[in-house]
């Protein structure tokens, strides 16, 4: 896969993952990362810690995914066909997430509320948030696992991190945003759209994989 395409795909996935994460976790994270009574400096430090933790976790996941991928996808046929199937399955999950009325409103980051040390809160939030296994993360894990080199797997996860982090940047200002519901809706729809894009990609990959044997 070309680097350009790899980055584009991963960024889209990140964007979709970030929006759905924001929808479910936003309410829990606001009190910690949002302006409130805290100063801009503290918010900036907390947000940086949160994002840095996520980046570290994603690099660990990229390494693990690639090594597992090397072991699992050594067979050419498996390498051509399985990622396509996984893409489709996870993309369906992504679409289902966006259209489901029973969308899980519980945020895994709620556990963080029990942490007392304030300094550790953004780090815990980062860990829980990046390990909140959503369909988009499954797709990026598949992508990382099927890359030719470890560097490519890192690039995929880095683009995924950038895409998902964009959504968190306005968090400190979120309290001042009037139309949160609208942003939430657009986020959910973008998630569904990303799912459709990856479903098409999965089908195209699968057909291409079958044709190429």
């Amino acid at each position: 896969m070309q680097k350009k395409e790899l980055m584009t795909d991963s960024l889209i996935l990140g964007l979709s993952s970030g929006s759905s994460c924001l929808v479910t976790c936003g309410m829990v994270m606001f009190p910690y990362l949002m302006a409130g009574s805290a100063g801009v400096k503290r918010i900036a430090i907390d947000l940086s810690l949160f994002l840095l933790t996520r980046l570290v976790i994603y690099f660990i996941l990229a390494t693990l995914a690639w090594y597992f991928g090397q072991a699992l996808f050594s067979n050419q046929v498996v390498r051509n066909v399985v990622p396509g199937i996984l893409y489709i399955v996870f993309a369906v999950m992504l679409v289902w997430y966006s259209i489901s009325k029973n969308r899980n409103q519980e945020c895994p980051a709620k556990i963080v509320k029990t942490v007392n040390n304030h300094r550790l809160v953004p780090i815990f939030l980062g860990i829980v948030n990046s390990l909140g296994f959503c369909p988009a993360l499954f797709i990026i894990l598949t992508k990382g696992a099927t890359q030719g080199t470890l560097i490519q797997s890192y690039i995929a996860f880095l683009a995924f991190f950038i895409g998902s982090s964009i959504w968190f940047l306005p968090l400190p200002l979120a309290g001042k945003i009037r139309k949160k519901e609208v942003l939430k809706t657009i986020g959910i729809l973008a998630t569904g759209l990303a799912g459709i894009i990856f479903m098409i990609k999965g089908i195209t990959n699968l057909i291409g994989g079958i044709i190429n044997g």
Binding site: K4, E5, M7, T8, I12, V182, L189, A190, L193, A194
Partner: peptide, 18 residues
């Protein structure tokens, strides 16, 4: 009715990157 905004975000970013 908010879908065009999601499409706008997606196509703007993908077009910029590719």
């Amino acid at each position: 009715k908010w879908m065009p905004f999601a499409v706008l975000i997606m196509v703007s970013l993908t077009a910029a990157l590719s």
